[in-house]
Amino acid sequence: MRITNQQLGNMMLSTLRASSSKAADLTSKMTSGQRVQRASDDPIAAVRLLMLERDTSLTARYRKNIDTLTVRLQKNEAHLDGMLDTMMSAKDMLTAAADGSHSAPDLNAMAGPLRTLLDNLKHAANAKDSDGNYLFSGTLTGTAPIAYDPSAPAGSRYTYAGNAETQSVVIGHGVTQTANVTVDQLAEVMNKLEAAVDALGDANVDPNDPALRDIVTAALDATSSKGVDALSAKIAGLGGAQNTLQLMDDNHSAQLIANGQATQLVGELDFAEAYDQLNNYIAAMKGTYQIYGRMKQLSLFDAI
């Protein structure tokens, strides 16, 4: 069977194109260092790489959520620490007012600082974040948690206007962390504290009046149990939450390292093997050129 010069040329060009394409593809892989650049290179490895990429993206998002949430919890803790200090100062003053050893002028003098402490509590409870959202109103972030109605009777002017709903942030696969703290119990404390302030500030206050003692004692009990104790528990909870966030962040960091190593094992190019293959393709192309050039010089007369 005879092979025409055109057929021979087409065969040689097809062989050269195939070898050149493989050499170019291998050169591209050597440049990127990745042996899997498309699914056809290694379908199984390509699927594994996509799964690793997806997991890495999710893990990076979780770490970003953790960073944001950590800052928020630290702000919450700082404000609660301030409220706790204020509450402890109020408790000390109420303890002194309840011991029965102070004169009427002394009790009157205590009313002013207690009123200041009460105002500080309201200001701290209605703190906002950098976006203008209230920190301690549950999910009603646009509503001040502690509302004040001056027209209401003393002892009932403060109300909690937020809710007890929690805001949850995803920090891992199926893991969420509460992002907010409420101060719903604070309104009752502030009402009792204000009642004590009004009673102590009365110009006709009687240090020996049992009614006065009842009002001061009620304020002291509320300041202790629903003030100092409750705030201390919330601060402890925030500390535990931040420890959890740190643990999760460490786990995510280790996971990202593991994903990076797995990605290298699955998709990294073996340069020694690739270099040998490239040399083989180059040698094949050189040989094809030489054979083609030699065959172009042959004719039927060479066989006579």
Rank of each mutant, 00 (worst) to 15 (best):
G172F: 09
H173M: 12
H173N: 15
G174K: 04
G174T: 07
Q177Y: 08
T178C: 01
A179S: 10
N180K: 00
N180C: 02
N180Q: 05
V181G: 05
V181M: 05
T182F: 10
Q185M: 06
Q185S: 12
A187Y: 15
V189Y: 07
M190D: 07
M190N: 09
N191V: 12
N191D: 09
E194R: 00
E194L: 03
A196T: 02
A196K: 03
L200Q: 03
G201K: 03
A203Q: 09
A203C: 03
A203G: 09
A203V: 12
N204C: 03
V205T: 07
V205E: 07
D206K: 04
D206N: 15
P207N: 08
D209Q: 00
A211L: 09
A211F: 04
L212F: 05
L212Q: 06
R213Y: 01
D214H: 00
D214S: 14
V216S: 05
V216E: 11
V216W: 01
V216Q: 07
A218F: 07
A218N: 12
L220S: 13
A222Q: 10
A222Y: 02
A222W: 00
A222M: 06
T223S: 14
S224R: 13
S224I: 06
S224D: 15
S224N: 13
S225E: 14
S225N: 15
S225F: 01
K226Y: 08
K226T: 08
K226E: 14
G227Q: 02
V228L: 02
A230V: 03
A230T: 06
L231I: 15
S232D: 10
S232N: 12
K234Y: 02
K234T: 02
I235Q: 11
L238V: 13
L238F: 05
G240H: 08
A241L: 10
A241S: 15
Q242F: 08
Q242A: 08
N243F: 10
T244I: 12
L245A: 10
L245H: 02
L245V: 02
L247H: 14
M248C: 06
M248I: 12
D249M: 11
D249F: 05
D250I: 09
A254W: 02
A254L: 08
Q255S: 15
L256Y: 00
L256G: 07
I257R: 10
A258N: 08
A258K: 11
G260Y: 07
G260C: 04
G260A: 01
Q264D: 03
Q264S: 13
G267W: 01
G267E: 03
G267M: 04
D270C: 04
D270Q: 01
F271M: 14
A272V: 12
A272F: 03
A272P: 04
D276T: 14
